[in-house]
């Protein structure tokens, strides 16, 4: 593959779109993966726990 301007531009114009789609898919899978739900719920609540000390 040659790196002239046209090919670089063509790559730039197409690659980003696929990358965006792939990334969105990964994020959505991660976010809606059923077994992750309890961890998210837990995480959202942890910061509200009153104990103001490190764990060890």
């Amino acid at each position: 593959m040659s790196f002239d301007h046209d090919s670089v531009v063509a790559f730039a114009k197409s690659f980003g779109l696929f990358y965006l789609l792939a990334l969105s898919a990964c994020v959505l899978v991660y976010v809606y993966w059923p077994s992750n739900r309890p961890r998210f719920d837990k995480a959202a609540k942890t910061i509200l726990e009153g104990e103001d000390r490190p764990w060890r």
Partner: peptide, 15 residues
């Protein structure tokens, strides 16, 4: 990615 894709082609634009 975004920065790379937008900036990289500008270095070949002289052509």
């Amino acid at each position: 990615v975004g920065g790379l894709i937008e900036i990289a082609p500008l270095f070949t634009i002289d052509e």
